[in-house]
Nucleic acid binder design. Structure first.
Lengths: 363, 363
DNA sequence: TGTGGCATGGGTAACGTTTTCCACGATGTT
DNA sequence: AACATCGTGGAAAACGTTACCCATGCCACA
């Protein structure tokens, strides 16, 4: 044979080969009710012998596509990659296939991508840190099962999975205050939109910072540089903070990249870390764990968030009318080498290597 | 209106609303031949008024799905993200939507993912650094237009886009030899499979290294540590190389992560970079560019590779029988602060601040 | 007045699955 | 014995789009 340009095997071929109806084959494929064990075996054998694979396009026309779409705003963000790992791990033994839609930074792009996923009749959507309006999200959720990850604010249309950013910020303040710091500053991502001010993690972190400062009797020390969650934002924010009359002894950056920018500004100012200034990040990304950087950071078990999202989504696909659920996970603080007691502190402790330092190999 | 639970608008609705046939609407949708400008306008208006969006599932059953699948073996690899950016940028103004399939490290996983994409009747596939056998790739390419990125070896069934890894390795050796180095060692990703030995970039880099060393009259200095392209691989490889009787004055790591591992091993051995040992990476990832690391590295324009891949794929979708094309791009070397002349060279330079120490320096 | 080509529009049969409904025999119940 | 029930299997109608082919009207040309 030269090149048969194989016509794809269809359910009809399988049915003929097993000498049953296509209905029967379909039932076996979907584990549906109404097929005896004998039938199941017979059909399964035909499927295996012919190497049959169902066409998702055809399935989508009537039933499910067994496809779950995940929207990721930024592929380079390692935290998002962790979430994705959690999703795929949770979905590993199911029939669902995960597909990612890349390149959706900005509301317009995001809308386009979500539409594209709906057009492709995906069975469910996981939206990671979406920026769309609440109304829009509700509309989306009404037309397809949806789980929103990393955005606060509960809805009756979609499930959510978040990390407790307020608690994360509190962990940071607590850690620093426990080390003896009082002038603890924060670099936040500037936000004006009133809804986002409530729902976006960055705003929650800033709120958590304020609350925790007050709780530790440091209300008068609250000092926030409002820039953006970028390397440059960290650099500029730290510069701003360091130029204060009384400069902070500790900086809580709202994200790891921000902390890296801050580190550069601090070093540029001729100061040392953690000798003169302690620095804490957020996300516990691979960068934070990297030996030479060794950044104290808040860890948000991304894998578990992803796993929860996947579980909720599969549940909702099975029962579209169940009540919405809102999972909030607790972060932990990973102490590394960018935090220590303030220079002017009483106890002249020899800076001990914190327990969280890692061997070079598990970076 | 309470909650209509909107039935999706179909092509029939549009046809009725515009008072034409579904065939006409379909022609307008696909920019197909046989529709007058007047017809186009009328139908387009109906589409806009009704907010109609075609169902990809239904389309896939007869024609195209306007979906392009990209297989990425490792999301965390920033170089792959660049490639993806190039693909989406090139496809930006077309009707195609890019979808990513994650979690395909390993031959088995890769096969599963590729099958999944074919099942979903994608119009074309971009496979980034696939590990499947040549036969398998050919089979895939026979059933769907395919472009393979980052794997050498030409095929008559699929197009390829690669970076010239041999040239890249030569750039490194040239740079180091130009600085006066003679003992230039290499850390490679171990490979035994004969096909991969020819086709995989890592093998090509090792070959390029050997060739370049010979060309520079350094054949007797060839020294390779065979580990893996991971952080740990770099750490162990460097440890191995540093324990040689005559230790190398320069290490060419086959990838940036490998270089980072090597940096840790070097620092652990009490040596400085680039004072005692120069280090070069490959990929010019964001990590390499990061100020405190500032790693000299080979840059492979990932965006351009992606753009080329997308262009080739769209071409092939349009004409499945055209000859296969094989694009090979040239890398460049980005010199940063991890390379300098060898310590025993003539000039008694004061040891500069090695980039690998923890204190952040600049941007 | 035919004849052929071209531009335009539509009718209809796919495409491969799932869903809905019905038939049939076996079994249990009154 | 008559009647409901259950378990199993199949026929046929969707699902929304595109491909294929034909009908029509118009024009140019012999």
């Amino acid at each position: 044979m030269p090149k048969p340009a194989h016509r794809r095997i269809t359910i009809v071929d399988v049915a003929r080969h097993a000498q049953v109806s296509t209905t029967a084959v379909s039932k076996v494929l979907r584990n549906a009710y109404g097929a005896s064990p004998a039938m199941r075996a017979k059909v399964q054998q035909a499927i295996d012998e012919l190497g049959y694979r169902p066409s998702a396009a055809a399935r989508g026309l009537r039933g499910q596509t067994y496809t779950i779409g995940v929207m990721i705003p930024e592929l380079r963000n390692l935290f998002f990659a962790d979430i994705l790992d959690g999703i795929t791990a949770q979905l590993g033994d199911t029939a669902y296939q995960v597909l990612l839609a890349p390149g959706c930074n900005g509301e317009k792009e995001e809308a386009r991508v979500i539409e594209a996923m709906i057009d492709r009749s995906m069975d469910g959507l996981v939206l990671i840190a979406p920026v769309s309006s609440r109304t829009r999200l509700n509309n989306v959720a009404r037309s397809v099962p949806t789980v929103v990850v990393g955005r606060h604010g509960s809805s009756t249309a979609y499930d959510t999975v978040t990390d407790d950013d307020v608690a994360g910020a509190a962990l940071v303040v607590e850690h620093l205050a426990g080390l003896g710091h009082r002038r603890i500053a924060h670099i936040e991502h500037h936000e004006t939109d009133p809804v986002r001010l409530l729902e976006m993690p960055n705003a929650q972190r800033a709120n958590g910072y304020r609350d925790a400062m007050r709780e530790h009797g440091l209300a008068d020390q609250i000092d926030i540089a409002s820039t953006s969650y970028t390397h440059q934002g960290g650099y500029l924010g730290a510069k701003q903070l360091l130029s204060r009359d009384q400069r902070p002894t500790a900086i809580f950056a709202g994200a790891d990249v921000v902390a890296l920018g801050a580190l550069e500004a601090i070093s540029e100012a001729g100061l040392s870390v953690p000798g003169d200034v302690s620095v804490v990040g957020y996300d516990n990304s691979a960068l934070a764990a990297f030996g030479p950087i060794s950044l104290t950071s808040v860890d948000q078990d991304g894998r578990q968030m992803g796993a929860n999202a996947a579980r909720l989504l599969v549940d909702r696909i099975a029962d579209r009318d169940r009540r919405t659920a809102h999972v909030k996970l607790s972060p932990t603080l990973v102490v590394r080498r960018t935090t220590a007691g303030p220079a002017r502190a009483a106890a002249p402790r020899p800076a001990p290597d914190p327990a969280a330092t890692r061997t070079p190999t598990d970076g």
